[in-house]
């Protein structure tokens, strides 16, 4: 085991896969000479050279088109979005092209690309730079959507993403880049898609979440365990598409109470899909309505106090837990 940061784990995954497969390359803004906006690609230009670590202009639509075309012609590219807010500029390529080519070609053409970079909210980056839009991608048939919460998962899931023959949206979280953890060193260690991880076992309430929000959920679970002796089971989805419904339902059948939590806005957020699936499959097992913890339906404000209110915190999760156990 290696003890590394989340950002380093992502780098390790890329390095291992680039060493394993000469068809893997990375391109994006400031990935090479600048050593990565968040240092994720640090040292990679020196290691692999400029034909495999490719600095691009600020042209997201063309970056995504380039990796998609390169994948159609047999390469296995990784595109780094400086942040996922800038992927919006490339949305037509992603949604109308990358995602649909396998299907439109009747399966003749595969598009093994990974589009990765930081997503999520925080740091007073305000409306245009601080948002979480994973439900957009999850809505598009043909895209897999991955949101790792730990260094080990970041490495194992990214390696799976690079080896996957389909387009993968790999959403990191800038707030996690500095997070340390044990990481499996084995270059053949992969974390498969569609297998949620029960991060914490409990019998009273199921909390379903992913990415950075899990830290918030854990703190809330700690506090409510101490104060009210309520034991929460915390499920990390790891991948939103494919979704591990089975693990969720199994937990619901045990706890009968559910909180779903994410950073992205509430309205048609991923929590809506999760709630619907649970109602469809386990309605009779529920002892109380599902609680959704989500960002409010507002663009991200800049001011510190408003931003704090626009990102779900421990107290929001605790309040939701109390409501599902009828304590509130």
């Amino acid at each position: 085991m290696l003890n590394v940061k989340y950002g380093e784990a992502i780098r390790l995954a890329m390095i291992e896969e680039m060493e394993r497969d000469p068809n893997v390359f990375i391109c994006g803004e400031e990935v090479g000479q600048y050593q990565g906006t968040f240092r994720v690609t640090q040292g990679m230009l020196e290691r692999f050279g400029s034909s495999r670590v490719v600095d691009t202009p600020i042209s997201e639509a063309a970056i995504v088109g380039l990796v998609t075309g390169a994948a159609m012609a047999g390469l296995r590219p990784i595109a780094e979005m400086m942040t996922f807010s800038f992927a919006l500029v490339a949305m037509d390529q992603i949604v109308n092209h990358t995602a649909k080519i396998s299907y439109m070609s009747g399966g003749q053409v595969k598009v093994p690309v990974v589009i990765r970079g930081p997503a999520g909210t925080g740091n007073q980056l305000s409306a245009q730079h601080s948002q979480s839009l994973e439900s957009w991608y999850s809505h598009i048939p043909g895209l897999k959507v991955v949101m790792p919460a730990t260094p080990n998962d970041a490495k194992g899931l990214l390696k799976s993403a690079i080896r996957d023959d389909n387009p993968v949206i790999f959403m990191e979280h800038a707030g996690l880049y500095g997070m340390r953890g044990e990481v499996n060193e084995d270059p053949e260690y992969l974390v498969p898609f569609g297998q949620a991880h029960i991060m914490r076992e409990g019998s009273d309430v199921t909390i379903v979440s992913y990415s950075h929000m899990l830290n918030t959920c854990h703190r809330a679970a700690d506090q409510i365990a101490q104060e009210q002796n309520i034991n929460c089971e915390v499920i990390d989805l790891r991948t939103l598409v494919p979704l591990d419904v089975e693990t969720i339902i199994r937990s619901v059948r045990k706890t009968h109470r559910v909180v779903v939590a994410h950073e992205e806005a509430r309205n048609t957020g991923f929590g809506a899909e999760l709630s619907a699936r649970i109602y469809e499959l386990a309605f009779d097992d529920l002892d109380s309505p599902i609680e959704r913890v989500a960002g409010p339906d507002v663009p991200m404000p800049y001011a510190k106090n408003l931003e704090r209110a626009a990102i779900p915190h421990d107290d929001d999760v605790i309040a939701a837990i109390k409501r599902v156990v009828n304590l509130a």
Partner: peptide, 18 residues
């Protein structure tokens, strides 16, 4: 505005870039 105050030109909601 840079301080995120309501007296800022975008009421503290935009910040430096807006």
């Amino acid at each position: 505005e840079l301080y995120g105050r309501v007296t800022g030109c975008s009421r503290g909601k935009g910040g430096s870039m807006h």
